[in-house]
């Protein structure tokens, strides 16, 4: 079953909205389970979740820091007056982790979409082609520019500029030096790009065709309807508890 990219957008939007509006760890836990089920149904690989293992220590530190400030709950570990760990802060910390995981989950849904189809979907939503195209070019060239900037940083240091030892009055001069090649590169790319676009007939006619097609099937409408109504039921049930 291949779902339309718009259906996936709706599901991701619902899940991330739920993650943001609730703070209760139990509710967020339920939403996370729903997210995992949705990911499994959409056949998105759960592998990326495991890449965030390394952050666990960071969360533990966060929980301890919160314990210092959140008053309430039973103190579990104390040094004198200082509460190092309280039940309240553990629950709060868990809620934050759950929320984060849900947001990653909906991000994974978006990442599983084909970028070209997503841009086409934006076009179908009557976003002007120029804007869609700008986003496309941005996605294409931002990694290239980041790579160039890091090369520039490396070579300027290898040319003898120790960025950590630069005196305050020279900082501006160094940054002007760093941005000179970057700005030149952007300017040069923009110029070449406009020539190339001209050569490939960009915006030559008021309309254009699309090689790719996206279409909403019956199943898409059913799933969107179902997800929206489930979301409403979920919100209502939670508010009554």
């Amino acid at each position: 079953m291949k779902l339309d990219v718009r259906t996936k957008l709706v599901i991701a939007a619902i899940l991330s909205t739920l993650a943001i509006i609730y703070q209760n760890a139990v509710v967020l836990g339920v939403v996370l389970i729903i997210t995992i089920v949705a990911l499994a149904l959409l056949k998105v690989s759960l592998q990326s979740f495991f890449d965030f293992r390394k952050l666990i220590y960071l969360y533990l530190v966060l929980i301890v820091i919160q314990s210092l400030f959140i008053r309430g709950g039973e103190p579990l570990i104390t040094i004198g007056e200082l509460h190092l760990l309280t039940t309240e802060s553990i629950i709060y910390g868990i809620a934050i982790i759950l929320r984060f995981l849900i947001l990653i989950g909906s991000g994974l849904i978006l990442l599983s979409c084909n970028l070209s189809e997503m841009l086409l979907a934006m076009d179908r939503m009557h976003i002007p082609y120029e804007i869609v195209f700008m986003i496309q070019i941005g996605i294409r060239f931002i990694p290239v520019l980041i790579n160039e900037l890091s090369n520039i940083f490396d070579t300027i240091q290898l040319r003898g500029v120790d960025l950590r030892k630069v005196y305050k009055r020279k900082v501006i001069r160094v940054y002007i030096s760093i941005f000179t090649p970057l700005i030149y590169s952007i300017w040069q790319k923009a110029e070449q790009l406009s020539i190339l676009l001209e050569l490939r007939g960009f915006r030559r006619y008021p309309t254009r065709t699309y090689y790719r097609t996206i279409s909403m099937g019956v199943i898409d409408y059913i799933i969107i309807g179902l997800s929206l109504s489930l979301a409403v039921i979920f919100v209502v049930v939670i508010s009554m508890l």
């Binding site: 090369n151 520039i152 070579t155 290898l158 040319r159 030096s177 090649p181 030149y184 590169s185 040069q188």
Partner: peptide, 11 residues
């Protein structure tokens, strides 16, 4: 070190 692309080292 001289990069492949000299544009990235002209300041």
């Amino acid at each position: 070190y001289v990069l492949q692309n000299p544009n990235q080292m002209l300041f």
